[in-house]
């Protein structure tokens, strides 16, 4: 065999062709009695339907959780989940948290250190070579 081929799998580039929102499911838990979920209840009553209709790609579940603080849990495509407790928050605060979960990738929080660019092709110009390109004359 003069030439053989290496088997690989093509890599996804989300957003190059189609864009898939990483947030897959949103669970909202509330309590009817406790005061800590007053803002959450107001959000569910007045704002959630608008959010749901503008984001049809997210599956939304609302369920009571009596005598507990209200929680929003986002389930992501990469099979991770992210939970935020929204106790004692006003409507605006709950709305911000929902938007935060919607816009998140679901990745773990990572410290951005030395390599700030993460890409399939990190440098547009390729690896620098001392033997090529125009000569610099001083």
């Amino acid at each position: 065999m003069p030439l053989s081929a290496i088997k690989t799998v093509s890599k996804a580039q989300n957003g190059v062709g189609a864009f898939i929102l990483p947030l897959r499911r949103l669970d909202l838990h509330y309590c009817d009695w406790a005061g800590s979920s007053r803002g959450m209840n107001a959000y569910l009553r007045n704002h959630l339907s608008r959010f749901a209709s503008s984001n049809p790609q997210i599956e939304i579940r609302v369920s009571p959780k009596p005598h507990r603080h209200p929680v929003i849990i986002g389930h992501y495509i990469n099979s991770r989940r992210r939970a935020i407790c929204v106790k004692n928050l006003q409507v605006e605060g709950v709305r911000e948290k929902v938007e935060y979960l919607r816009n998140h990738t679901g990745e773990k929080n990572r410290k951005i250190g030395w390599d700030k660019v993460r890409s399939l092709n990190e440098s547009v110009r390729g690896v620098w070579s001392p033997f090529h390109g125009a000569r610099i004359r001083i």
Partner: peptide, 8 residues
């Protein structure tokens, strides 16, 4: 959109 847009 879903297949040819993948990187190979």
């Amino acid at each position: 959109d879903h297949f040819l847009s993948r990187h190979l």
